[in-house]
Amino acid sequence: MLTSEEIEKIEHEISLVPVRKAACVEALKVVQQHRGWVSDDTLKAVAEFMEMSTAELDSVATFYNLIYRQPVGRHVILICDSVSCWVMGYENVREVLSDKLGIQYGQTTPDGKFTMLPNVCLGCCDHAPALMIDNDLYHDITPEKLDEILAKYA
């Protein structure tokens, strides 16, 4: 079931496009924003609301890297693993971060706080290595900076 708040936001997105279906990615973004991820039940509810088949909506949802079809932690850490960050040594940063949090890519810390995922180039290559936590971009990352960054998230 979608909440009335979600429905209101999705309706707004639908009003901006000529074909209802065209707002389906926006609809997925809306529910993910509210629920953190898109479960099977959520997907079904959105598909029904968008007047699409579940399979069709899932084929769209799974196409994108940033629609989460599995639960994630309260904060998602996206580490740039593309070429400039690789040249500038992001692998070392990732290993230290992995050790600190005790998780690998795709895993969530036991307290449900952080999920760590690889991500393609963040468009910040002149300040590599770069990573994002939720909506915040961090660049020129060294392992020494990680504690201070992580401390900002509750």
């Binding site: 901006l16 496009v17 074909v19 279906k21 065209a22 707002a23 389906c24 990615v25 926006e26 997925l28 973004k29 084929s59 769209v60 196409f63 994108y64 890297n65 940033l66 629609i67 991500n119 393609v120």
Partner: peptide, 27 residues
């Protein structure tokens, strides 16, 4: 004029894939 933010897939930069993405299809 409308702003549409993607949800992350390099192929969306290819202009016809981008158009499909805007129409709510697989890109």
């Amino acid at each position: 004029m409308h702003l549409h933010t993607g949800v992350g897939r390099y192929i969306c930069g290819e202009e016809t894939a981008l158009i499909n993405a805007l129409q709510g299809k697989r890109a």
